[in-house]
């Protein structure tokens, strides 16, 4: 296991998540892209704030199986 492999590991998962693909790795889990669209949020001040859209990575462990 080399650093190149680790870099490629991170890059491939990231690229697939950016492309809205979910990646399944046996024995580890699945990475999934979760998109939260822009939404309004009322802060404690009472100000209404429009939050920008956001993509986040969700990971589900596959260890137990």
């Amino acid at each position: 296991m080399t650093n190149d492999f680790l870099k490629a590991f991170g890059l491939t998962i990231r690229d697939q998540i950016i492309m809205k693909n979910s990646v399944e790795i046996k024995g580890l889990g699945t990475f999934k892209a979760e998109h939260t669209s822009q939404q309004q949020e009322r802060k404690g001040d009472g100000k209404l704030v429009m939050l920008p859209p956001k993509d986040s990575i969700e990971f589900k462990a596959d260890m137990g199986e």
């Binding site: 950016i18 949020e41 704030v49 429009m50 920008p52 859209p53 260890m63």
Partner: peptide, 25 residues
């Protein structure tokens, strides 16, 4: 097992929305 994405990964995933900040309505 929890996965905490690094800041780099999180920003790279959100490159599409770079520059978009919360706006007061």
């Amino acid at each position: 097992i929890l996965f905490i994405p690094s800041d780099e990964l999180e920003t790279e995933v959100n490159y599409k929305y770079v520059g978009m900040e919360p706006i007061e309505l």
